[in-house]
Nucleic acid binder design. Structure first.
Length: 613
DNA sequence: CCTCTCACG
DNA sequence: ACGTACGTGAGAGGT
């Protein structure tokens, strides 16, 4: 047995690393005599759980004073002992549980379903105390800063410490986790300490949640959502690999051709704003917009105008198109789509042709979910070619169900907007109804669109200038429409002011109806309206996911996208399942109905998106 | 590492 | 008193 010691918060911690059967017997005795929760962690070769090269290396167990590092990679009795301990543990404390659940599910044969009901995830507790990510003013949710704040200011940065070890060997962060020897002292010490830190974090964070009156029900709900999202991640989405390879090649050629055109005007790299600004100026163009740091802005809206193109990339006919602007736009778009989407699909696909995005169920400061590697929530919607790469399972079709104007309906509920609630309950087109109130019975399509923009603007906390910028309508016209809007729905302004006042009085934190704490920056108090609408809409999605889970639909679910759920369903049962999913997404919030609209597509996700979409 | 840009809801 | 668009993930360039 190897043992290591380290002092945490004044206590000497022992980390034990069994080396033989005798040592493992001792571990077995320790594990079976444990009463109460045990902290769990794994060390792995990397983060891509479904990559063919991924290896589970160690499984660690710990309490406040002691940790055991079991070398899973050595096989045989090591695995037997780890599995017994996993099976017997009554309660597991895990920091960022979905990762370890899925690692153990895929590489140790311990199902996620058997782990999740016994898990308390300290990352969830952290996000409910303060949802801000590191760099947004809060502590963030990494184990090190959390431990430093709540356990011991001198808690070791185990990740950073190991990164230094890797550097000493000439390895990188990407390769070190795979290459470091199982017997390396620092590797084992830190592997063990992470469980000790988690074991100490859990009771402190629970106490803090009690102090802050965060409802237990919210914590329970987040654990359910984490499990459902982990199940979606495990299922993954089928990738059309042949199509994707051809697409990547085609986009590469396209990016290169347009980059060659740009080079004729002196632009060596189409991704260098400075080069583009200089070349455009040399061509006689006048750039007026500047970035926050004072540089000349050459983003998409600027370049589209110079290229005489509208938002859909059609000729406007207002000027002679600038050929460099045109080349840069087209090269950048093809390059981004190739690299960010196509290439990442091919890099992350597993042996069964499936991609498994990490779905973070509780990510944004409003609680919104996110998806990474690949970032499937941000695939282009203006064209079907990227989504075309992702398929329903064999014999199945893609189904997408989205809430109807969920944030606006949530606003109507939370601010108790009388006329808006009447319109929703009457089943009216909400933006059309608003246009009717603002412009009268002969309102135009453009005026309806402006009312839609104002609806968004209100939810985002924007003013006339922002809404004008977004909608393209003149500021004066927008201001007049906003005035009429405020007369129609006076409750929105009043509630917004009230929420801002309440946030200030409560120390710049607003508590949502579900008990979620929403920190508000002092110089951005107006954002509280958006935080409240966005976070409540997120909880509406969460409620629908839990309903679908209870209805047995989880195996069909593929991805949550804020106000939408993507699913793969058997073609024959599609209409019935569409109805079932819509039903799970239909329920009232404070008397205001939330409703959804399901669309049945074909085999690929792209089939739900026309070129004219 | 920061800035800029761009993809989404 | 006034005015403020919100939240993400990701790649490339340049310091």
């Amino acid at each position: 047995m190897r043992t290591y010691q380290h002092v945490i918060a004044g206590d000497t911690i022992t980390v034990r690393v069994p080396e033989n059967d005798h040592d493992l017997d001792e571990f077995d005795r320790w594990a079976s005599s444990l009463r109460g929760p045990v902290a769990l962690d794994t060390e792995t070769s990397g983060l891509d759980i479904y990559s063919p090269h991924f290896r589970l290396r160690t499984v660690q167990f710990g309490t406040a004073r002691e940790a055991w590092v079991i070398h899973w990679e050595k096989g045989g009795a090591f695995r037997g002992s780890a599995l017994r301990a996993l099976r017997n543990a009554e309660q597991l404390l895990i920091h960022n549980a979905p990762f370890d659940w899925l690692v153990l599910d895929h590489h140790a044969g311990v199902t996620l379903e058997s782990l999740a009901p016994r898990t308390l995830d300290t990352r969830i507790l952290s996000a409910l105390i303060d949802p801000r990510q590191a760099g947004e003013g809060g502590t963030g949710h990494a184990l090190k800063p959390l431990s430093a704040r709540w356990v011991d200011p001198a808690a070791p940065d185990t990740q950073e410490g190991l990164t230094e070890v890797f550097r000493a060997f000439g390895w990188t962060k990407a390769t070190g986790w795979s290459r470091i020897s199982l017997n390396h002292p620092t590797y084992n010490l830190y592997a063990g300490l992470d469980t000790v830190l988690t074991a100490r974090l859990a009771p402190v964070l629970r106490e803090e949640l009690r102090r802050l009156d965060v409802p237990d029900q919210l914590t329970e709900y987040e654990h359910q959502l984490a499990r459902i999202c982990a199940q979606m991640q495990r299922t993954g989405i089928l990738l059309d690999q042949q199509y994707t390879r051809q697409l990547v090649t085609r986009l590469g050629v396209e990016a290169q051709e347009h980059a060659d055109r740009a080079r004729r005007y002196g632009v060596e790299s189409v991704n260098s704003p400075a080069q583009i600004a200089e070349a455009l100026t040399a061509m006689g163009e006048t750039l007026t917009e500047r970035t926050g740091n004072g540089a000349l802005k050459v983003d998409k809206p600027v370049l589209l105008a110079l290229a005489d193109l509208d938002d859909d990339w059609n000729r406007i006919g207002a000027r002679t198109p600038n050929p460099l602007a045109d080349a840069v736009l087209k090269s950048k778009r093809a390059g981004k789509w190739r690299q960010t989407y196509g290439q990442t699909f091919l890099e992350t696909v597993d042996e069964n042709s499936r991609v498994h995005p990490s779905i973070n169920a509780l990510q944004a400061r409003t609680g919104r979910m996110s998806a990474t590697r690949p970032a499937l929530q941000t695939l282009p919607s203006s064209d079907f070619i990227i989504r075309r790469a992702l398929l329903a399972d064999d014999g199945q079709v893609m189904l997408s169900a989205d809430f109807k104007a969920v944030e606006l309906r949530v606003l109507a509920a939370l601010a108790d907007v009388v006329k808006m609630k009447e319109a929703i309950n009457a089943g009216a087109d909400l933006h059309g109804f608003t246009a009717l109130q603002v412009f009268g019975p002969n309102y135009t399509e453009e005026q309806r669109d402006l009312c839609k923009s104002i609806g968004f603007g209100k939810v985002y906390g924007g003013g006339a200038l922002g809404i004008s910028r977004m909608s393209g309508a003149p500021v004066a016209a927008v201001q007049r429409a906003i005035d009429a809007y405020d007369r129609t729905y006076p409750e929105v302004r009043r509630a917004s002011k009230r929420w801002q006042r309440e946030a200030r009085n409560a120390g710049f934190v607003y508590v949502s109806p579900t008990g979620r704490r929403l920190p508000v920056d002092r110089d951005k108090v107006y954002a509280v309206t958006n935080y409240l609408c966005q976070s409540t809409a997120r909880d509406v999605l969460g409620q629908a996911l839990i309903q679908m889970d209870e209805d047995g639909l989880t195996p069909h679910l593929r991805l949550p996208i804020h106000d939408e759920v993507l699913a793969s369903v058997p073609a024959a049962a599609a209409p019935e399942l569409a109805h079932e999913i819509e039903r799970a997404m239909t329920f009232p919030i404070w008397g205001v109905p939330m409703e959804a609209n399901a669309k049945i597509g074909g085999r690929s996700w792209g089939s739900l998106y026309g070129a004219d979409h």
